[in-house]
Design a protein around this nucleic acid. Structure first.
Lengths: 251, 251
DNA sequence: CGTTATCTTGACCGTCGTCAAACAGGGTGG
DNA sequence: CCACCCTGTTTGACGACGGTCAAGATAACG
């Protein structure tokens, strides 16, 4: 009944129900939470390591990433989030943030109180369950990144990441024909891939020379999509895409 | 009241309640599940990528690990599990396994039906909640591994892993004074660290020469524990140890 | 249009990988 | 008890992938 379609929390509901159904009454309870819509400019911190976060948000527009630092200052980006993704679930029940969350671009985020969402997740099984599955999928992606960084060459890594973005963005209707605007600088790509800026640049250049990537300005497209997947060993299973759709894109 | 102390599922209960309380009746329902206790010899597969697992188990004795393969055959170990840990939670709600699970040593595993545990987790909030938190902690560890492999040198990586084992084993009472039997071959260490066997050997040798590691046979100990933590940048926050205990070991 | 971030390229270097061989160590069976 | 094997460890020589340092070129943006 609460069909206020402009409620930005619909994004969160959509994400949560992607893998598991939510009871109507639970959904309505979620939509009834007080929500704040905030804009951040590129590079803003949403959460800092060591913080006790008080909000949990979904990206309405823009991109964000999570990162960790070594004691020496090396930075590793551990995930990148696109519009429609919930960025704070891993801190829902852990007291103190173990990583940073920052915006990659200018960003619009719809947030609810962490404790309120926590209560919902605890009391309403269908919501708790949906949260769990979202977290499980994120874990799977983390494992694939670990494989990439641990065992793939720079070229494979970069190609793999570009494939991942293409598929994820396509799922959100943001990358028709696998063409999209790459939201990351080469320095950020480097931090996501465990490489240096210089080497990302050179690797990118190789892929372009091989005709595997086409770029104009910040946009990338892939004239030989199948070859790109082949050289990177990309298989979308680890993304655990909602089933029907995964049939079309999977291979 | 169900105080049949020999039920191997107590291990699972203990693990689940480490971070979040479970209602007594829920705990009893869990303990009432039919359980099978099985032995595996070192190297056995518990789950294969692509499988639809039917069991969910807790390690009673021995060690296990999870791994992924690139299309070329490179192997990355994405986590190592010690006695008392539940090894299959990430597959509880995902249809198809996205990685392999194998025993590292001879192993004793207490298993329950995956679907039965799934039902429990779905119907009994306190269990579902405990499962979620366990999964969240695993995610945090994955992120730290990503940081290690992406941004730390071989020496730092190896030292960091040895610290992690020491702390985790100590929590289980299996590494008094941070001394323990390393359950992995150097080849397995290499696959966990994103290195090669040869380089692990050399790095290990350096750490020994520096007096940071002491070895006899498969046992390791750390005469300069604080220095070891310093060179690896180890901080136990990412392990999200149960609070009281984390005070003692944290720094 | 100037200022700054980002990209690009070159020269050089080092960590780590590759290949190969020798060397334990721990079971097994004769 | 010793030969035997198998797995795991250790070492050397060499090569390469990727890092470092530094400078110049483009593009983004107010």
């Amino acid at each position: 009944m609460t069909h206020s379609d402009d409620n930005p929390l619909w994004q969160m509901v959509k994400k949560l129900t992607a893998h598991a159904p939510i009871l109507e009454e639970d959904r309505d309870a979620l939509l009834a939470l007080p929500v704040t819509l905030a804009r951040y400019r590129a590079g803003s911190y949403l959460v800092r390591e060591g913080d006790i976060p008080s909000q949990c948000g979904v990206i309405v527009d823009g991109f964000a990433y999570r990162s960790k630092l070594t004691h020496i200052g090396g930075r590793q980006i551990v995930s990148v989030h696109i519009p429609g993704e919930i960025i704070d679930l891993q801190h829902l029940f852990l007291d103190v943030a173990d990583h940073n969350i920052q915006t990659l671009t200018n960003c619009e985020v719809a947030s609810v109180s962490r404790s309120a969402l926590r209560e919902l997740a605890r009391e309403r099984a269908s919501i708790g369950h949906a949260v769990l599955i979202n977290v499980l999928v994120e874990g799977s992606i983390l494992r694939e990144w670990l494989l990439s960084i641990g065992r793939r060459t720079a070229r494979e890594r970069l190609a793999h990441l570009l494939c991942e973005f293409a598929v994820k963005l396509d799922m959100q209707g943001l990358a028709a024909g696998h063409r999209y605007e790459l939201p990351m600088s080469q320095e950020q790509l480097a931090d996501a891939l465990g490489l240096t800026t210089v080497h990302v640049n050179r690797t990118l250049r190789v892929l372009i020379a091989e005709g595997l990537i086409l770029r104009d300005h910040r946009f990338v497209s892939f004239p030989r999509w199948d070859d790109l997947k082949r050289v990177s060993g990309f298989q979308s299973r680890y993304l655990h895409l909602p089933t029907q759709i995964s049939q079309q894109l999977a291979t």
